[in-house]
Design a protein around this nucleic acid. Structure first.
Length: 207
DNA sequence: CCCTGATTCGC
DNA sequence: GCGAATCAGG
């Protein structure tokens, strides 16, 4: 394989989007991540300045003052790539059993604008532990991560992708985090932090 | 062990 | 210019 204009372009695009060299290599095919990195350097764009208003990492542990009550003016234009794949078996109305009492496209956790998501009762919402048990900082970082989630489908899950479900399964606005999972764990760093909480942290208020 | 990008250097 | 091997790090 050679670096055709097309391939170089896809490389530039993905690199500026923050994709890792290995992901880019996988996408391009026929090249290794080393090749991608090498090319990136030769192109002189090792410094990721594609966009982004400087948003390094989404660390789970403290470290940052966590100051941002309001999402603030979105600096980056909404990413127009929600559906990375046309994969959609579009079954008439087969799947989804008897769990469709409410038509509301509720997305308690997935909605970015929601500051205080109130989980409606009696819904098939996945793992999400009661939001009251999560520290504000953690919750904030999780929201951040979910913005950057790869939004992958069930079929795209692998042993190395975060399997944290986001959204309401009864809605078409449902997907999995998909970010790289911690080796040996089913979730990415951020979701591991909310999935596995030490007993001492869980303030179970006896009811 | 999984992964990341950075560098080197023979081709 | 290319990219495997290697390095340095998480």
């Amino acid at each position: 394989m050679s670096w055709t204009d097309e391939r170089v372009e896809l490389l530039k695009k993905m690199w500026s989007e923050g994709q890792s060299a290995s992901q880019i290599a996988k996408e391009l095919g026929g090249v290794t991540r080393n090749a991608v990195i090498g090319k990136v350097h030769r192109l002189g764009l090792s410094n990721r300045a594609g966009a982004e208003g400087a948003a390094p990492e989404a660390e789970a542990p403290v470290a940052k003052p966590v100051v941002e009550p309001t999402p603030a003016p979105e600096p980056v234009a909404a990413r127009p790539e929600p559906a990375p794949e046309p994969v959609r078996a579009a079954p008439a109305q087969p799947v989804r059993p008897t769990v469709v009492p409410r038509p509301e496209p509720v997305a308690a956790v997935a909605t970015p604008a929601m500051r205080k998501p109130v989980v409606p009762a009696g819904q098939p919402l996945p793992p999400q532990p009661s939001l009251n048990e999560i520290s504000p900082e953690t919750l904030a970082s999780v929201r951040e991560v979910e913005k950057r989630s790869r939004k992958i489908s069930l079929m795209e899950l692998t042993e190395r992708t975060c399997k944290w479900p986001i959204g309401d399964p009864a809605t078409d606005n449902f997907y999995f985090c998909g970010l790289p999972s911690q080796p040996g764990k089913p979730y990415c760093e951020a979701h591991v932090s909310v999935a596995f909480q030490p007993m001492s942290t869980r303030r179970d208020r006896r009811r």
